[in-house]
Design a protein around this nucleic acid. Structure first.
Lengths: 209, 209
DNA sequence: AGCAACTAGCTGAACGATCAGCTAGTAATT
DNA sequence: AATTACTAGCTGATCGTTCAGCTAGTTGCT
């Protein structure tokens, strides 16, 4: 029963490949390494996925799928309810928990963004549409464009995980520490509240106060 | 005179290599490519730099040097003078102009941070020390830790360039547009002022705006 | 039930291409 | 003459891909 199971073998190869592609990158990872890590023969990954590029595409599609599933769940978890001020904290929560739980996704996307990004442009298009729709009211309240709010929030949530071996440890911080996520969420919520307060008090564009 | 010039050839090789390493990564770049781009024979880069790894180290050291020079210049350009509130805008200005002008540095560091970051940890250590010292007063005024302020500012300035082919174009933004830098600087300055205002109104701190 | 025909899963071996590094050598500069 | 600059050619290793072949499991026929 377990001796020959195409689905299970496929899964093992995908699992091994995504780990290696994420850690080492496409070019630094050989089919030999993938096969060894998956516990199959050298030719088996090619048998199932046709080519190295085909295997990589499958790995990337899988990671993107995980992200989209997580996003959908996060949106429907607070569908409709909640004040627009809380939207930022909920959004930050969702981003931080997903990025923190799926390091492989972060690495793969980071590597893609060092290329031309064409393989993930569709994903980002949908992501932006959803995010702008969800954060539009909050952005209006804070007096910033929705695009800039999304950019800021994603940047602030993404960076700590994308640079957890460079700037972040040099600052003495650890993005995997639960306390970090808690503090980050509160910190970004403070920022939004502060912006909204500044906006309502000065009632216009701040040129030179 | 110009037919045989070690310094000039070295320079040409470094220039070609940094471009290719940044665009394609270490493993996807061959010595053959580098030599062709530099206009020399295949063995010449090895002659000057010993090995591919040695050439890469030289390229990285050069890029890090450019960054450190830019940082030093930015600090001494406003040494001592200026209000602590302006420190953020000056800092953001320096980061944005350097990241925008040296895309190769951004790519190389981004690739390093996908590894273990050991080759650039020294650079980040010094960078953090300087930044924390420069932004300490501003951070205290805004009621956040200097580390978090540095993390936020670097994340907000870095991300647009590190993802200029993925999320940023999906948002309809262009980090190379001069208007983007202007708006980003003002936006982050607003954030800091808003935080400081929130801080002074909620606690006993007195601060004249 | 039993046997033959067929398919899916998987493999080891071999292919041509390309890689980085080395050696022995030539040509220009000092 | 000596040193530096530079190169063509070679080498062993490794790369991704291909392919014939083996095995386990399923289906169809009697």
């Amino acid at each position: 029963m377990a001796t020959r199971d195409g689905a299970r073998t496929r899964e093992a190869i995908l699992r091994a490949a995504e780990e290696l592609f994420a850690r080492q990158g496409f070019d630094a990872t050989s089919m030999q390494q993938i096969a060894a890590a998956a516990g199959v023969a050298r030719a088996t990954p090619s048998y199932f996925f046709g080519s190295k590029a085909g295997l990589y595409d499958a790995v990337l599609a899988r990671a993107v799928d995980r992200a989209q599933t997580a996003i959908v769940r996060a949106y429907e978890a607070r569908d409709g309810s909640g004040a627009p001020e809380d939207a930022v904290e909920a959004y930050v929560d969702a981003l931080l928990s997903f990025f923190g739980s799926d390091q492989i996704f972060v690495c793969l996307i980071q590597r893609e963004s060092l290329g031309d990004g064409s393989r993930v442009s569709e994903f980002f298009g949908r992501f932006v549409d959803d995010a702008v729709a969800a954060l539009g009211p909050t952005a209006a309240e804070a007096g910033v464009s929705p695009q800039r709010l999304v950019l800021d929030l994603v940047a602030l949530c993404w960076y700590p995980f994308a640079h957890e071996h460079t700037l972040v440890p040099a600052l003495g911080l650890d993005p995997r520490d639960p306390a970090f996520a808690v503090e980050q969420r509160r910190h970004l919520g403070d920022l939004m509240r502060a912006l909204a307060a500044l906006r309502s008090s000065s009632s216009g564009r701040t040129q030179t106060p």
